[in-house]
């Protein structure tokens, strides 16, 4: 039996409901990230927010990007962040997070910013297509055509960027072996 076009009773289309659900989860989870008092839970909530975004990408027909989001953002970056959180948790750092003294003005500024965004981006004449349901899935071909067309240089340079970041990251985070240049055999020297 096919599903009805809209949600029963409230008359919202399935696509709209899905969008509202995913968007709501994204906002709720990210609010938790910036407001929550336990940093480990914040990290987990970040993963939830990023996951919900991946869902929105699927809705937009950008499955390839959703894949990248899951692999890179959730699989790598967030795990790295959680790892860093575990590593830096100690008795010296209070488990209950506190805010800077300017948190209240920051909240005001951010609320104002959100309203301005909503107005400017919502009322702008984008000359955009309107889809009946959700947009058709984007073929990987068009993305690939862009990546290996106009963005080829950027694409290649990003690999250099990652190389540079990895070299620097390893250097900064690594504890050098004794005897090597940079070894910590003399704490006073810096």
């Amino acid at each position: 039996m096919p599903l009805p076009d809209t949600l029963p009773l409230i008359g919202i289309t399935w696509a709209d409901a899905l969008f509202m659900m995913l968007g709501g989860v994204t906002i709720a989870a990210s609010l938790f990230v910036v407001l929550g008092r336990d940093i480990i839970r914040n990290g987990l909530m970040l993963i939830l927010a990023l996951g919900a975004l991946a869902g929105i990408y699927v809705m937009l027909g950008a499955a390839i990007l959703a894949g990248a989001q899951v692999l890179v953002y959730i699989g790598a970056i967030s795990v790295l962040i959680l790892f860093a959180i575990m590593l830096t948790q100690s008795k010296a750092a209070p488990a209950k997070l506190t805010f800077q003294s300017q948190a209240l003005p920051a909240a005001l500024i951010a609320s104002l910013l959100a309203i301005i965004f909503a107005i400017t981006l919502g009322t702008n004449d984008w000359k955009a297509t309107v889809f009946a349901g959700t947009p058709a899935p984007q073929g990987t071909t068009s993305t690939a055509a862009e990546l290996f067309g106009p963005y080829l240089l950027a694409f290649e340079v990003v690999s250099v960027l990652i190389l540079a970041a990895v070299i620097g990251g390893i250097y900064l985070a690594a504890i050098p072996r004794a005897g090597q240049i940079g070894a910590e055999d003399d704490e006073e020297v810096r």
Binding site: D16, F19, M20, A118, N124, V130, F131, G133, T134
Partner: peptide, 16 residues
């Protein structure tokens, strides 16, 4: 669709 088929809701979500 009133929302999901339009560009603006996505951008507003992004702004928030």
């Amino acid at each position: 669709s009133q929302i999901a088929g339009h560009l603006e809701p996505y951008l507003v979500l992004a702004g928030i």
